[in-house]
Design a protein around this nucleic acid. Structure first.
Length: 284
DNA sequence: AAACAAGACAACCGCTGGTCC
DNA sequence: TGGACCAGCGGTTGTCTTGTT
Protein backbone atom coordinates (compact mmCIF):
# COMPACT_ATOMS: atom_id res chain seq x y z
CA UNK A 1 0.00 0.00 0.00
CA UNK A 2 1.22 3.46 -0.77
CA UNK A 3 1.03 6.55 1.34
CA UNK A 4 -2.36 7.77 2.25
CA UNK A 5 -3.62 11.31 1.98
CA UNK A 6 -4.39 11.98 5.60
CA UNK A 7 -5.84 15.39 5.05
CA UNK A 8 -9.05 15.28 6.95
CA UNK A 9 -10.18 18.75 6.09
CA UNK A 10 -12.51 17.31 3.54
CA UNK A 11 -14.26 15.34 6.25
CA UNK A 12 -15.63 18.16 8.29
CA UNK A 13 -18.98 16.50 8.53
CA UNK A 14 -17.39 13.77 10.65
CA UNK A 15 -18.07 15.68 13.81
CA UNK A 16 -20.21 14.56 16.71
CA UNK A 17 -21.62 16.27 19.75
CA UNK A 18 -19.99 14.81 22.77
CA UNK A 19 -20.46 16.21 26.22
CA UNK A 20 -19.43 19.85 26.35
CA UNK A 21 -18.48 20.35 22.71
CA UNK A 22 -18.23 19.06 19.19
CA UNK A 23 -15.73 16.22 18.82
CA UNK A 24 -14.07 15.40 15.57
CA UNK A 25 -14.21 11.89 14.17
CA UNK A 26 -12.61 10.18 11.25
CA UNK A 27 -9.09 10.34 9.95
CA UNK A 28 -6.54 12.45 11.72
CA UNK A 29 -5.06 15.46 9.95
CA UNK A 30 -1.30 16.12 10.04
CA UNK A 31 -2.03 19.16 12.20
CA UNK A 32 -3.84 17.05 14.75
CA UNK A 33 -1.02 14.52 14.73
CA UNK A 34 1.48 17.28 15.34
CA UNK A 35 -0.52 18.69 18.24
CA UNK A 36 -0.82 15.33 19.91
CA UNK A 37 2.78 14.40 19.25
CA UNK A 38 4.07 17.69 20.63
CA UNK A 39 1.92 17.40 23.70
CA UNK A 40 2.97 13.82 24.39
CA UNK A 41 6.65 14.61 23.93
CA UNK A 42 6.45 17.55 26.30
CA UNK A 43 4.12 16.13 28.93
CA UNK A 44 4.12 12.39 28.62
CA UNK A 45 1.19 10.09 29.12
CA UNK A 46 -1.63 10.92 31.49
CA UNK A 47 -5.39 10.97 31.57
CA UNK A 48 -6.43 10.82 27.93
CA UNK A 49 -9.43 13.08 28.22
CA UNK A 50 -7.16 15.69 29.79
CA UNK A 51 -4.61 15.18 27.05
CA UNK A 52 -7.25 15.71 24.39
CA UNK A 53 -8.34 18.94 26.04
CA UNK A 54 -4.91 20.30 26.93
CA UNK A 55 -3.40 19.53 23.55
CA UNK A 56 -6.08 21.65 21.94
CA UNK A 57 -7.63 18.76 20.08
CA UNK A 58 -11.31 18.46 19.29
CA UNK A 59 -11.12 14.74 19.86
CA UNK A 60 -12.24 12.45 22.61
CA UNK A 61 -9.56 10.96 24.83
CA UNK A 62 -10.22 7.54 23.47
CA UNK A 63 -9.48 8.65 19.94
CA UNK A 64 -6.24 10.32 21.08
CA UNK A 65 -5.14 7.22 22.91
CA UNK A 66 -5.75 5.06 19.87
CA UNK A 67 -3.94 7.46 17.56
CA UNK A 68 -0.95 7.60 19.85
CA UNK A 69 -0.74 3.87 20.46
CA UNK A 70 -1.32 2.78 16.90
CA UNK A 71 0.37 5.48 14.91
CA UNK A 72 2.33 8.21 16.66
CA UNK A 73 4.26 6.32 19.35
CA UNK A 74 7.97 6.75 18.60
CA UNK A 75 8.86 3.13 19.32
CA UNK A 76 6.59 1.76 16.62
CA UNK A 77 8.16 -0.41 13.99
CA UNK A 78 7.12 0.58 10.50
CA UNK A 79 6.85 -1.50 7.38
CA UNK A 80 5.78 -4.98 6.48
CA UNK A 81 5.96 -7.91 8.84
CA UNK A 82 9.08 -9.96 8.47
CA UNK A 83 8.78 -13.73 7.89
CA UNK A 84 9.99 -14.23 11.46
CA UNK A 85 7.30 -11.95 12.81
CA UNK A 86 4.73 -13.69 10.67
CA UNK A 87 5.80 -17.06 12.03
CA UNK A 88 5.63 -15.76 15.54
CA UNK A 89 2.15 -14.37 15.04
CA UNK A 90 0.89 -17.68 13.73
CA UNK A 91 2.61 -19.48 16.54
CA UNK A 92 1.26 -17.21 19.25
CA UNK A 93 -2.21 -17.18 17.75
CA UNK A 94 -2.29 -20.96 17.94
CA UNK A 95 -1.77 -20.61 21.68
CA UNK A 96 -3.50 -17.39 22.59
CA UNK A 97 -6.27 -17.19 20.02
CA UNK A 98 -7.54 -13.68 19.25
CA UNK A 99 -5.82 -12.08 22.22
CA UNK A 100 -4.22 -9.47 20.02
CA UNK A 101 -2.85 -7.36 22.80
CA UNK A 102 -1.03 -10.32 24.30
CA UNK A 103 0.35 -11.27 20.92
CA UNK A 104 1.42 -7.67 20.34
CA UNK A 105 3.17 -7.63 23.69
CA UNK A 106 5.51 -10.26 22.31
CA UNK A 107 6.26 -8.36 19.13
CA UNK A 108 8.16 -5.22 20.02
CA UNK A 109 7.09 -2.20 18.01
CA UNK A 110 3.91 -3.78 16.75
CA UNK A 111 0.40 -2.92 17.86
CA UNK A 112 -2.54 -5.15 18.53
CA UNK A 113 -4.50 -3.36 15.83
CA UNK A 114 -1.76 -3.88 13.29
CA UNK A 115 -1.48 -7.57 14.09
CA UNK A 116 -5.24 -8.01 14.07
CA UNK A 117 -5.49 -6.38 10.65
CA UNK A 118 -2.60 -8.41 9.37
CA UNK A 119 -4.18 -11.58 10.63
CA UNK A 120 -7.62 -10.87 9.25
CA UNK A 121 -6.46 -9.65 5.89
CA UNK A 122 -3.45 -11.82 5.15
CA UNK A 123 -2.67 -14.76 7.39
CA UNK A 124 -6.22 -15.98 7.87
CA UNK A 125 -6.67 -16.08 4.15
CA UNK A 126 -3.38 -17.80 3.58
CA UNK A 127 -4.07 -20.44 6.19
CA UNK A 128 -7.50 -20.98 4.74
CA UNK A 129 -6.01 -21.57 1.32
CA UNK A 130 -3.44 -23.91 2.76
CA UNK A 131 -6.09 -25.78 4.68
CA UNK A 132 -8.39 -26.21 1.71
CA UNK A 133 -5.56 -27.40 -0.47
CA UNK A 134 -4.32 -29.93 2.11
CA UNK A 135 -7.36 -31.03 4.07
CA UNK A 136 -10.98 -30.03 3.62
CA UNK A 137 -11.67 -30.73 7.31
CA UNK A 138 -9.25 -28.24 8.77
CA UNK A 139 -11.09 -25.64 10.75
CA UNK A 140 -10.41 -22.00 11.41
CA UNK A 141 -7.77 -21.73 14.08
CA UNK A 142 -9.75 -19.12 15.92
CA UNK A 143 -12.47 -21.52 16.92
CA UNK A 144 -12.71 -23.34 20.19
CA UNK A 145 -10.69 -26.32 19.06
CA UNK A 146 -7.74 -24.31 17.86
CA UNK A 147 -5.36 -25.83 20.34
CA UNK A 148 -5.69 -29.36 19.19
CA UNK A 149 -6.05 -28.45 15.53
CA UNK A 150 -2.88 -26.43 15.50
CA UNK A 151 -0.87 -28.91 17.48
CA UNK A 152 -1.63 -31.58 14.97
CA UNK A 153 -1.32 -29.31 11.97
CA UNK A 154 1.55 -27.09 13.04
CA UNK A 155 3.72 -29.34 15.12
CA UNK A 156 6.32 -30.39 12.60
CA UNK A 157 6.83 -26.84 11.42
CA UNK A 158 7.70 -25.65 14.88
CA UNK A 159 9.88 -28.67 15.50
CA UNK A 160 11.91 -27.64 12.51
CA UNK A 161 12.19 -24.14 13.86
CA UNK A 162 13.45 -25.35 17.17
CA UNK A 163 15.98 -27.57 15.51
CA UNK A 164 17.13 -24.66 13.42
CA UNK A 165 17.56 -22.66 16.61
CA UNK A 166 19.91 -25.28 18.00
CA UNK A 167 17.61 -26.96 20.46
CA UNK A 168 18.80 -30.45 21.25
CA UNK A 169 16.31 -33.12 20.32
CA UNK A 170 18.56 -36.04 21.06
CA UNK A 171 17.91 -37.77 24.35
CA UNK A 172 21.24 -39.53 24.44
CA UNK A 173 23.68 -36.74 23.88
CA UNK A 174 23.01 -34.11 26.49
CA UNK A 175 23.28 -33.72 30.17
CA UNK A 176 20.50 -31.99 31.95
CA UNK A 177 22.30 -28.68 32.26
CA UNK A 178 23.60 -28.60 28.73
CA UNK A 179 20.10 -29.14 27.45
CA UNK A 180 18.86 -26.20 29.39
CA UNK A 181 21.61 -23.92 28.16
CA UNK A 182 20.68 -24.81 24.62
CA UNK A 183 17.18 -23.54 25.13
CA UNK A 184 17.72 -20.50 22.96
CA UNK A 185 14.27 -19.14 22.54
CA UNK A 186 13.70 -18.61 18.83
CA UNK A 187 10.60 -16.52 19.29
CA UNK A 188 11.56 -14.50 22.33
CA UNK A 189 8.13 -14.21 23.90
CA UNK A 190 8.03 -13.10 27.48
CA UNK A 191 7.09 -16.48 28.81
CA UNK A 192 7.83 -19.98 27.80
CA UNK A 193 6.63 -22.75 29.99
CA UNK A 194 8.62 -25.93 29.84
CA UNK A 195 6.59 -28.82 31.11
CA UNK A 196 7.88 -32.13 32.35
CA UNK A 197 5.36 -34.84 32.92
CA UNK A 198 5.98 -37.07 35.85
CA UNK A 199 4.22 -40.24 34.82
CA UNK A 200 5.91 -40.29 31.49
CA UNK A 201 9.04 -39.06 33.09
CA UNK A 202 11.31 -38.93 30.08
CA UNK A 203 9.48 -36.20 28.27
CA UNK A 204 9.78 -32.49 28.29
CA UNK A 205 7.76 -30.24 26.14
CA UNK A 206 7.36 -26.59 25.59
CA UNK A 207 3.79 -25.73 26.31
CA UNK A 208 3.86 -22.36 24.59
CA UNK A 209 5.30 -23.99 21.56
CA UNK A 210 2.87 -26.90 22.06
CA UNK A 211 5.50 -29.27 20.85
CA UNK A 212 7.52 -31.89 22.63
CA UNK A 213 11.02 -30.57 23.08
CA UNK A 214 13.01 -33.71 23.76
CA UNK A 215 13.39 -36.57 26.17
CA UNK A 216 15.35 -36.36 29.34
CA UNK A 217 18.70 -38.10 29.37
CA UNK A 218 18.87 -41.51 30.89
CA UNK A 219 20.61 -40.36 34.02
CA UNK A 220 17.54 -38.38 35.01
CA UNK A 221 15.24 -41.03 36.37
CA UNK A 222 11.95 -40.69 38.15
CA UNK A 223 13.64 -40.41 41.49
CA UNK A 224 15.75 -37.54 40.22
CA UNK A 225 13.00 -35.70 38.47
CA UNK A 226 12.37 -33.24 41.25
CA UNK A 227 16.06 -32.55 41.43
CA UNK A 228 16.32 -32.16 37.70
CA UNK A 229 13.49 -29.70 37.68
CA UNK A 230 15.04 -27.75 40.48
CA UNK A 231 18.32 -27.72 38.59
CA UNK A 232 16.63 -26.44 35.47
CA UNK A 233 14.86 -23.76 37.45
CA UNK A 234 18.14 -22.79 39.05
CA UNK A 235 19.63 -22.21 35.63
CA UNK A 236 17.16 -19.37 35.31
CA UNK A 237 17.12 -19.33 31.55
CA UNK A 238 15.48 -15.99 30.82
CA UNK A 239 11.89 -16.35 29.75
CA UNK A 240 11.65 -20.00 30.60
CA UNK A 241 10.04 -21.64 33.52
CA UNK A 242 9.64 -25.24 34.52
CA UNK A 243 6.52 -26.85 35.81
CA UNK A 244 4.97 -30.25 36.39
CA UNK A 245 2.25 -31.82 34.43
CA UNK A 246 0.89 -35.07 35.67
CA UNK A 247 -2.04 -35.98 33.48
CA UNK A 248 -0.09 -37.60 30.69
CA UNK A 249 -0.88 -41.27 30.92
CA UNK A 250 -0.27 -44.47 29.07
CA UNK A 251 -3.16 -43.82 26.71
CA UNK A 252 -1.38 -40.95 25.06
CA UNK A 253 2.11 -42.31 24.76
CA UNK A 254 3.24 -43.83 21.51
CA UNK A 255 5.06 -47.15 21.33
CA UNK A 256 8.31 -45.32 20.85
CA UNK A 257 7.75 -43.34 24.02
CA UNK A 258 6.83 -40.04 22.45
CA UNK A 259 3.68 -38.22 23.45
CA UNK A 260 0.64 -38.47 21.21
CA UNK A 261 -0.09 -34.81 20.94
CA UNK A 262 -3.50 -35.29 19.46
CA UNK A 263 -4.54 -37.37 22.47
CA UNK A 264 -3.49 -34.89 25.09
CA UNK A 265 -6.07 -33.16 27.19
CA UNK A 266 -4.97 -29.71 26.08
CA UNK A 267 -7.74 -27.90 27.81
CA UNK A 268 -7.00 -29.69 31.04
CA UNK A 269 -3.35 -29.03 30.58
CA UNK A 270 -3.85 -25.36 30.01
CA UNK A 271 -6.35 -25.13 32.83
CA UNK A 272 -3.72 -26.74 34.99
CA UNK A 273 -0.87 -24.47 34.07
CA UNK A 274 -2.86 -21.29 33.57
CA UNK A 275 -3.31 -21.19 37.31
CA UNK A 276 0.39 -20.67 37.65
CA UNK A 277 1.26 -17.10 38.52
CA UNK A 278 3.72 -16.52 35.70
CA UNK A 279 1.26 -17.23 32.94
CA UNK A 280 -0.84 -14.41 31.64
CA UNK A 281 -3.27 -16.23 29.44
CA UNK A 282 -6.28 -18.39 30.08
CA UNK A 283 -8.23 -20.82 28.05
CA UNK A 284 -11.18 -19.39 26.25
C1' DA B 1 -9.86 5.76 -19.25
C1' DA B 2 -13.53 4.41 -16.35
C1' DA B 3 -15.85 1.31 -13.37
C1' DC B 4 -15.68 -2.04 -10.25
C1' DA B 5 -13.67 -5.42 -6.84
C1' DA B 6 -10.49 -6.67 -3.57
C1' DG B 7 -7.01 -5.61 -0.35
C1' DA B 8 -4.96 -2.97 3.33
C1' DC B 9 -5.23 -0.20 6.98
C1' DA B 10 -7.14 3.42 10.19
C1' DA B 11 -10.50 4.44 13.26
C1' DC B 12 -14.75 3.72 15.78
C1' DC B 13 -17.96 1.15 18.82
C1' DG B 14 -19.40 -1.42 22.55
C1' DC B 15 -18.07 -3.93 26.25
C1' DT B 16 -15.32 -5.24 30.42
C1' DG B 17 -12.63 -4.61 34.38
C1' DG B 18 -10.20 -1.67 37.58
C1' DT B 19 -10.10 2.33 40.55
C1' DC B 20 -11.79 5.98 43.16
C1' DC B 21 -15.09 8.35 45.87
C1' DT C 1 -22.17 -0.95 47.98
C1' DG C 2 -22.74 1.24 43.86
C1' DG C 3 -22.06 4.77 40.53
C1' DA C 4 -18.82 7.45 37.71
C1' DC C 5 -14.86 7.53 35.20
C1' DC C 6 -11.12 5.70 32.68
C1' DA C 7 -8.03 2.46 30.12
C1' DG C 8 -7.83 -1.32 27.44
C1' DC C 9 -9.53 -4.91 24.43
C1' DG C 10 -11.58 -7.22 20.37
C1' DG C 11 -14.94 -6.86 16.71
C1' DT C 12 -16.51 -4.20 13.12
C1' DT C 13 -16.91 -0.55 9.83
C1' DG C 14 -15.20 3.04 6.83
C1' DT C 15 -11.92 4.83 3.66
C1' DC C 16 -8.30 4.84 0.55
C1' DT C 17 -5.25 2.33 -2.70
C1' DT C 18 -4.29 -0.98 -6.01
C1' DG C 19 -5.41 -4.32 -9.36
C1' DT C 20 -8.47 -6.08 -12.90
C1' DT C 21 -11.80 -5.98 -16.50
Amino acid sequence: MGMRNNDNDNNNNNNVKNGGGVKRKGLWSPEEDEKLMNYMVRNGQGCWSDIARNAGLQRCGKSCRLRWINYLRPDLKRGAFSPQEEHLIIHLHSILGNRWSQIAARLPGRTDNEIKNFWNSTIKKRLKNTATSSSPNNSDSSDHTHLKANVVGGGPVFMQEYEAAGVCMDSSSSSCSSMATQFGNPFNPNHHLMVMDQQHNNSIFDLNGVVPMFNLPNEVGTENLAGAMAALNDLSVPGWEVSNYESVNNNNINDDGSIKLEELDWEGLLANVSSLPHLDFHLQ
